[in-house]
């Protein structure tokens, strides 16, 4: 059931991210989903979805550089670290990871642009900084909302919850 739930979450988020992307709006929804799955279910599932989503996203966007999968794997490592360090019961503790994972989602494009326009870093900063700042701000609020929504559905389906991940970790 948890696997099916993860599949539905990721398919929906992937589709929504592509949809908003078509309107020039980069919403890092997939990274939010991977972060949720890594904490609520397990880091193994997180890695699976990170690789799959990263490769798919790069292919859909016709990116020649396959950095997203690596960046998303880094996100799963960060999620595991955050789970062991911070109490996940409080949604306010999702604001900071929201900012960090949003930065992870744009990191591959930063690296790509810095490599391509290596003699014109001012352009890269001018082009990417406004987008990055807006994404960080949006995702700081978006991630707690996503966690709230997915946990609400997960509770009804009797699935492992994000907000009870610390307890499960201690018991396991």
């Amino acid at each position: 059931m948890a696997n099916l739930y993860a599949l539905i979450i990721m398919l929906m988020l992937f589709w929504l991210q592509l949809l908003f992307g078509s309107f020039a709006l980069h919403l890092p929804l997939c990274v939010g989903g991977i972060f949720y799955i890594s904490i609520a279910f397990s880091w193994r599932q997180g890695i699976f979805w990170a690789v799959l989503t990263g490769i798919s996203l790069d292919l859909f966007y016709s990116r020649e550089f396959f950095l997203s999968a690596w960046a998303f794997i880094g996100l799963v490592i960060f999620a595991e670290y955050w789970l062991r360090k911070i109490d996940m019961r409080h949604l306010r503790n999702c604001i900071m990871p929201g900012v960090i994972i949003a930065f992870i989602s744009v990191l591959p494009v930063w690296l790509y642009k810095l490599a391509i326009y290596r003699d014109n870093t001012v352009f890269v900063f001018k082009d990417m900084l406004p987008v990055t700042i807006s994404i960080l701000c949006i995702n700081a609020f978006l991630l707690p909302v996503m966690v709230l929504l997915f946990d609400e559905i997960g509770e009804k389906l009797r699935l492992p919850l994000f907000t009870k991940a610390n307890k499960r970790l201690l018991e396991g």
């Binding site: 592509l18 908003f20 992307g21 078509s22 020039a24 859909f60 966007y61 016709s62 990417m128 987008v131």
Partner: peptide, 14 residues
């Protein structure tokens, strides 16, 4: 045009 990378808007589309 049905799909575009929002971060590399001018480099390609579907």
């Amino acid at each position: 045009i049905i799909l575009r990378d929002p971060l590399r808007w001018k480099e390609g589309f579907v």
